[in-house]
């Protein structure tokens, strides 16, 4: 099996797999967000600024987090405006992107003076976008896919006499399943006013902590990668939030009335 960096040609112009699935994932996530926002009667005066802030914050967070995850030598590329708008530079880390998007969305929501949180519409959209985006990571064999394995679904790497974990496919499979679970929970009375988004982030952080053990990311400390440290912190923050909440939030139907 070989990487597929070029997906297809259009009049001789190559269309690259990584960028194609990244863009497709974001557009699918945006489309789902629009559908969900309409279903929740979330006014456009709130959807537009919060979504824009989350998008910009997510893109900045994804790139900036690389300095923490991979080292200071990446700073000139990922912490500059030029690097931000260079299409040849990878988008960065999903974990950093989620953290950046959440912070920026929170600031935007405070700035528009929103009392509650209608941000639950983001939760399934994020899972769907990640699932699609991971197809591109798999096709280009990003970061060497994963650690060596003898499991039957291991993937051969060109030039290597061993199989490796198809880690992006694990991520894709989890996010597809998580998308379904979040959809099933979206009208639950406990999953309103921002709780569904927190669950979505916490669930992904929990999964990501464990999948990092079969990925090739750089170990930061105590045998853990930077992504694992941030995922653990995110999961603990969400767990602490749910542990301290004793009563369910108002139901979606009562919010709508």
């Amino acid at each position: 099996m070989s990487p597929v960096p070029i997906l297809f040609d259009v009049f001789g112009v190559p269309v690259y797999s990584h960028g194609f699935f990244l863009l497709l994932g974001l557009l699918a996530g945006l489309a789902w967000l629009i559908v969900e926002s309409r279903r929740r009667h979330w006014p456009k005066e709130e959807v537009i600024p919060i979504t824009l802030a989350a998008f910009v914050g997510g893109m900045i967070g994804a790139k900036a987090s690389i300095v923490f995850f991979n080292g200071f030598e990446y700073a000139p590329v990922v912490l500059s405006m030029a690097g931000m708008f260079d299409p040849r530079v990878g988008p960065g880390s999903i974990v950093g992107g989620v953290a950046g998007a959440y912070m920026a969305g929170y600031i935007a929501s405070k700035a528009i003076g929103k009392a509650g949180c209608a941000c639950d519409a983001f939760a399934p959209a994020m899972a769907l976008a990640t699932a699609i985006g991971r197809v591109g990571c798999f096709l280009v064999f990003e970061d060497g896919l994963g650690k060596p394995t003898t499991l039957p679904w291991g993937v051969p790497l060109p030039g290597a006499d061993y199989l490796v974990h198809p880690a992006p496919l694990y991520d894709m499979a989890f996010n597809l399943a998580w998308f379904g679970i979040l959809l099933a929970l979206r009208d639950h009375k406990w999953m309103q006013n921002g709780n569904l988004l927190k669950l979505g982030i916490g669930g992904y952080a929990f999964f990501r902590f464990f999948v990092e053990f079969v990925r090739n990311n750089q170990v930061l400390a105590f045998g853990l990668t930077g992504q694992q440290v941030v995922s653990a912190l995110m999961f603990l923050a969400v767990a602490a939030y749910f542990a301290t909440k004793s009563r369910p939030q108002s139901t979606f139907s009562s919010v709508m009335q």
Binding site: Y16, G19, I66, P87, R88, P91
Partner: peptide
């Protein structure tokens, strides 16, 4: 930038 990204090979972190 993301749209242009489909026309370029994205450099991996290494």
């Amino acid at each position: 930038t993301l749209c242009l990204g489909i026309l370029f090979a994205v450099a991996c972190l290494g």
